[in-house]
Design a protein around this nucleic acid. Structure first.
Lengths: 217, 217
DNA sequence: GTCTATAAGGGGATAGAC
DNA sequence: GTCTATCCCCTTATAGAC
């Protein structure tokens, strides 16, 4: 957290992140971001040359925050189950840290990008960094299947399920909170989410009749 | 499928469904829908009084298609595992039937609705019908836990996981296809998705050391 | 680094001819 | 039931004063 008052650039980025997460790229106008930042419309263009570049800057910041948790977790050693658990913990911590992260990530993953956005020079980098993290998780799953620690499972399908269980979950906003009857982001809800996802995966991926007396809370 | 050429209204609905699914409510203009339908902008307003009402009409059509498969599946009897499997099959069939369905549903579930949309009279009905299906699935899960056929699991969290594994999966578009290396909607991909999701859930929800020699393809 | 002013175009929606 | 023409507002972006 900044000890000094945030620069205009930081203020714009944080305001834009909140708005883009809620309403999407096309749903937010530059003027809205400017007003919420306490600036005039055209002052914004002094800091970011275009709306698309502002959006990309927001997204790169989100990716950096996620990577700072997930990439170290990918390096940890242990059984395949432990390694997968570490990554799930790290990813969920990352997504729970800022309520905007999962929403922006989910949009990036399923939404057809605006022409202005796909033309942006940062677009390729964003894709590559996302793909890098996914490849890291895929490697853990593949090793687990190859070593017999996980049953034979479709890796891409499992990746999709993991993304759904994490990114979608923390992106689900009011709908998810209505379903849970409570905040998605409270410490208790985040801890429960980690436990539920890891337990489902551990049990669901177990290769044979090797179930121990797993932790039944 | 229609034996007669589609009416303008049907043409508009199908065109709008494709566009809204890809680009979202704010990402699609009325003029785009009109042109793609082979009509002028204002002819569209003869069929739908506003953009919001067109969007709601699209969404209600999607919901009707999903309900036509999921609601009957909710009535089938069997073990909890069989009942859950039937619903997952039905839901995946429904989402695989039209590539637009999952995208529109996912938007509905995670996106902040445009003011014009939340003000629409159909909004409450859309929410209610979505909630109805979710309640039906929740009832199956609760009965399974209560009877000991499923281990003790957080129902809302599990619902979120199921939504992620189905709705998110079929909404993931190019990203998902790049991950799978093939179409999300081919008969083979759909069948595999059903199998992977049902197997993960069956194994993951099993209460104790009761694993049989589950089908390893 | 922020502002006012303006450009140039697109948005949803309406009126009225045919 | 479809069209042309129009209204008014909001959009991104630029120019230039302070």
């Amino acid at each position: 957290m900044p000890q000094v008052p945030p620069s205009s650039r930081e203020k714009i980025l944080s305001v834009a992140e909140a708005l883009f997460a809620r309403r999407g790229y096309t749903g937010v106008g530059i003027s809205t971001v400017a007003e919420a930042s306490g600036l005039g419309k055209s002052s914004l263009f002094h800091h970011f040359p275009s709306k698309a570049s502002l959006y990309c800057a927001v997204l790169l910041g989100v990716l950096a925050r996620i990577e700072s948790r997930v990439l170290p977790a990918l390096e940890k050693s242990g059984t395949s189950e432990q390694k997968l658990g570490n990554v799930v913990d790290a990813l969920i911590d990352a997504l729970a840290e800022h309520p905007t992260s999962a929403r922006l990530l989910l949009r990036e993953v399923f939404e057809e990008p605006d022409p202005a956005l796909s033309a942006a020079p940062e677009a390729a980098e964003i894709d590559a960094r996302l793909a890098g993290m996914i490849d890291g998780v895929a490697a853990i799953l593949e090793a687990g299947v190859a070593s017999g620690q996980f049953r034979k499972v479709g890796i891409p399908d499992l990746l999709q399920t993991i993304i759904g269980a994490t990114v979608y979950h923390f992106a689900s906003g009011d709908f998810g909170e209505k379903l849970l009857g409570a905040s998605l982001f409270s410490a208790a809800a985040v801890a429960r989410r980690k436990r539920e996802v890891k337990t489902l995966l551990s049990n669901g991926l177990m290769p044979e009749a090797r179930r121990s007396v797993a932790e039944e809370s």
